[in-house]
Nucleic acid binder design. Structure first.
Lengths: 341, 341
DNA sequence: TTGAAAGCGCTAACAG
DNA sequence: CTGTTAGCGCTTTCAA
C-alpha cells in the first residue's frame, strides 16, 4: 500500500481522563463515572470533575469508548440513488428518531454502482451500530451477509431475512388510475424503470392490477434509463402508442418525457396526462407542475431507524417487512382525456 | 440519562486477530501485519492468514485500530443548507479524492440552525480525521474552536485562521450583468438572501460592482427567506421597482419569483429576465428553464478534501483561502429587455 | 461514594 | 520474517 501515512496530528495533544483525574485529584474511574454515569458519584465531586474537564477542554476519545462499550451510538444511512434528492426526508426523520435515543446518523458516500455500493456499505458498517440501506442495488446474498454483521434495514426493497420498509405502490397507483379513468382515459402506458429494478416491477404490477380493476387498458413500455434523458427517448413510442395517459417509473423520466412531448407540440395535460413517481424535489418546478405518486419517505426513515433502535433495546425479533402507503399528488400534468366530455 | 442501554449485539461474536492467529498457528501480530501491512510478512504466511481470516469471516475492529493508530481514515462533510441539493457535487468529488488515499467521506446529519449545526459538527468531528463544512452558519469563534481540534475546511465561507474554498461570484455575475446590459436592461434588482449570510453580501457586492462597470442601475431588495416562498413574496416589490431584470440570491427564490410573476401575467423573459444563483438540481425543470450563476461545487469538494489530506501528509501550512470561479449558465429565463431593439 | 486493576482489539517497537 | 510485550483511552467489575 503506497503513500499510507497516518495523519500528522498537528493539533495539541488531547487531554485524557487521566489528565482530568490528576488535575482534579481523583481517580480516572471517577472521572469516567462523573462524565458518563452521573448519579453514581457525589454531586460535589461531579461538579469538580465537570469543571476541570471544561478547563482542560477534555473531549472523550470516541474510539476508546466504542472499543470498551461495543456501541458507537451511530446509525449509518446509505443511499444508492443520488439523483433522487428526495431521500432527505429519510435522513431527517431517521435523524429525529435517532436523536431521541442519543444516536446520530451518518450518511455513507453515495454509490454509483452495485459494486461501489457494497464497498461503501462495508466501510460504513464498521463504524456504526446499524445500517439503513435505501434502494440497495446489491445482490440479496450480499445484503444478507451484511445483515449477519450488524443490524441492517432496507428501504424501498424487500429482501427475505432482513427487516424492510417498503412503500406499497397500490394505494397511490389506484388513486392515479381511478383519477385517470374517471377523466375519460381509456389506455394508460407505464414507462418502466430498469429491467432488474425490484421497485419498477412492483409498480408495474400495481398499475396493471389497477387498470384491470378500472377496465382500462394498461401497456408497459421499456426505457433505456430511469433519467430525464431516458424519459425524452420515450416520447416517440408513447405518442405512437395512442395512449392519452402515462405513468412513469419515476419523476425524472416524467419530466424528460413531458418536455419532449411539449416540444413536439403535444399539450400537457390536454393531449396527454402524465403522472410520475416519487414526488421529487423540483416536481413542482415544471409547467404544468408534475403529478406524482409519493412515497412517505420520512415515515420510511423513522420506521427504519425505529426498527434498528428497537432491536438494540428489546428481544430479538423475526425479520419483518413494514408497508407504508403511497399517495397520489395531483398537480397540473394530469387532467381530462382529449376525447372526454 | 434514561433508557441508555448498550445495543444488544444479537449477532454472533466477532472473530478477533487472536482467533485468526490461533486457527492459523501464528502470532496475533503476524495476523495484524499480514492484513494491514503486507510486505512485512512472507507470502505463504500471508496467504495462510488471509485464507483463515476469510474462513472465520474476520472483520478488523475499527475502533481498536483507531484507538491504536489515531487515525480513522474518514473525512466528515457537514452541509447546512439542505434545501440546496446541489452539494452532491461536493460529496461526489470530495469522495473521489478521498478514495484515492483510502479515505472515505461521511455526511453528518444536516443541520437546521446554527445551534444544531454546531452540535452536529461536534459529534461528527470526534469520529473523523478532518471535517469539511459547507456554508457553515455557526459563529467564527465556534468555527475556530472546532478547527483547533481537528483539521477543518470551510466551503462557501471565508473565515480567518482556517482553510476555505469559496466560489468567487465576480466572474459569473459579471457575465450575467454584461449579458443583461447587452440585452438592453437598464436596471437590475438583486434579491438578497438572509441578512447575516456571508455569501449573500458577497454576491450583492459583485452585482453592484458589475452594474457600476456596465453603467446600469443596481438595486438591492431584502427578502424574508431564501426559499421558493420567499421568492414569491418578492414579486410585488420587484414588479413595482420597474426593473426589467432580477438576479436572486439563489435559485429557489428565482423559481418562486418566476412562478409568481408569471401568475401575475408577466412573461419571462419578455417582460422580465431572471437569473438565479447555484444552478441547483431542477433549475432546468422550469418553463422557461432558469438561467443561473453556477459555482463549481465539485471542484470545491475536491479542493477541500485535498486541503485536508495534504495537511495530513505534508508539513503544516498557513491557512489559506482558495477561490474558484463561477460561471453563468444561460437558459430561457433571461433575454432581451422589453424596450430593447 | 471512590479507588484499584483488568481488559476491550489492535498496532508497533524491540528482540530473536 | 516472526514472536513478545506494552500500551492506545476508556469503562467496569470488585473492593474498600
Amino acid at each position: 500500500m503506497p503513500a499510507d501515512e497516518a495523519p500528522v496530528q498537528t493539533k495539541k495533544a488531547k487531554a485524557t481522563i487521566y489528565d482530568v483525574a490528576q488535575q482534579a485529584g481523583v481517580n480516572p474511574s471517577t472521572v469516567s463515572r462523573a462524565l458518563s454515569n452521573p448519579g453514581r458519584v457525589s454531586p460535589q465531586t461531579r461538579r469538580l470533575v465537570e469543571i476541570t474537564a471544561g478547563v482542560l477542554n477534555f473531549q472523550a476519545n470516541h474510539s476508546a469508548q466504542v472499543l470498551q462499550t461495543g456501541s458507537t451510538r451511530m446509525l449509518g444511512l446509505l443511499v444508492s440513488d443520488i439523483t433522487n434528492p428526495n431521500f432527505f426526508g429519510i435522513l431527517r426523520e431517521a435523524g429525529r428518531v435517532a436523536t431521541q435515543q442519543q444516536y446520530s446518523v451518518v450518511l455513507g458516500n453515495a454509490a454509483e454502482s452495485a459494486a461501489t455500493e457494497l464497498s461503501a456499505a462495508r466501510r460504513l458498517i464498521k463504524t456504526v451500530d446499524g445500517l439503513i440501506l435505501v434502494s440497495p442495488r446489491m445482490s440479496e446474498s450480499n445484503l444478507q451477509l451484511l445483515a449477519a454483521t450488524k443490524k441492517v434495514v432496507a428501504i424501498n426493497r424487500e429482501v427475505s431475512g432482513i427487516d424492510c420498509v417498503v412503500p406499497d405502490p397500490d394505494r397511490g397507483v389506484s388513486q392515479a388510475v381511478r383519477f385517470l379513468a374517471g377523466n375519460g382515459h381509456q389506455k394508460i402506458v407505464f414507462a418502466a424503470g430498469p429491467e432488474m429494478s425490484w421497485m419498477s416491477a412492483r409498480r408495474w404490477d400495481a398499475v396493471s392490477d389497477a387498470c384491470e380493476w378500472c377496465h382500462v387498458t394498461a401497456e408497459r413500455i421499456e426505457s433505456t434509463s430511469p433519467t430525464i434523458d431516458g424519459g425524452r427517448k420515450l416520447a416517440r413510442t408513447i405518442k405512437a402508442s395512442g395512449a392519452t395517459a402515462v405513468i412513469t417509473h419515476n419523476d425524472l423520466m416524467a419530466i424528460g418525457l413531458m418536455h419532449e412531448l411539449q416540444g413536439a407540440g403535444m399539450a400537457v395535460p390536454e393531449a396527454i396526462s402524465i403522472v410520475g413517481f416519487d414526488d421529487i424535489f423540483g416536481a413542482d418546478f415544471t409547467t404544468p407542475s408534475l403529478s406524482s405518486i409519493r412515497s412517505p419517505l420520512g415515515e420510511c426513515g423513522s420506521l427504519a431507524a425505529g426498527l434498528i433502535l428497537n432491536s438494540f433495546a428489546g428481544t430479538p425479533q423475526e425479520p419483518k417487512s413494514l408497508m407504508v402507503d403511497t399517495e397520489l399528488v395531483i398537480r397540473g400534468s394530469a387532467g381530462p382525456a382529449r376525447s372526454a366530455p
